[in-house]
Design a protein around this nucleic acid. Structure first.
Lengths: 104, 104
DNA sequence: TATTTGCGAAACCAATTAGTTGCATATATA
DNA sequence: TATATATGCAACTAATTGGTTTCGCAAATA
């Protein structure tokens, strides 16, 4: 089973869950109220997010509060970094390519 | 059929294709040489990336050169922006929350 | 002109996904 | 203690996915 952060954020419901619990921790029931889907399906999404270590849970009595592990989101940022370099230095790179072409 | 950039980058083969053609445009055959999968399966991935407007194609005789539309990658960056704010201002936000709590 | 090459598309298949319903369990409350 | 509530988990299902094989077409080449 592939289970990484890229697969985790591929689903729009999971992205919405992430956005919700980024603000403050929430219980599965409270999260589910924001969607027209069952509590169980939200639970499954939470499990996937958990397996990706994207969220953290804290039991409080019979309730479980889920919150976002914001550090994990940095992984996406790190992956993006290489491309950010490209789009920021597009023209510099073009110059680079051209000068290299001249040398050959 | 869901077809957005988050679904596009969910597959590791597609992320590898993106990395490959980010450097310079390549033909499907040349791309496929880098994986132990068929040219046809790469073609399917390229179609998905195309449908997400993540790549650009240029016909040259019977060859088709695929290249990355780097601007599209910015969409991920924009989505990440809200979370970047959170992880950068974690402590500031904590202060914020605490001061708001005091007021209530 | 006949053959090879590069490619996309269709048909098919196994695995995975996102959802459902129906439990079981633990905690709160009457 | 009996009941209600919050939750996770298992079994099932339909849709989607990523791959394959097979095909057709257009461009290059012999």
């Amino acid at each position: 089973m592939r289970r990484d952060i890229f697969q985790a954020i591929a689903d729009p419901t999971r992205r919405a869950i992430i956005a919700l619990i980024a603000v403050h921790s929430m219980t599965p029931n409270a999260i589910a109220e924001n969607f027209n889907t069952s509590r169980q399906s939200i639970s499954k999404h939470l499990r996937i997010l958990s397996e990706c270590e994207l969220i953290h849970q804290e039991q409080q009595g019979r309730e479980i509060y889920y919150s976002l592990k914001i550090e994990k989101m940095k992984e996406i940022d790190e992956w993006l970094e290489q491309y950010r370099n490209i789009w920021e230095n597009r023209f510099d790179q073009l110059d680079d390519v051209l000068s290299k072409l001249k040398k050959n």
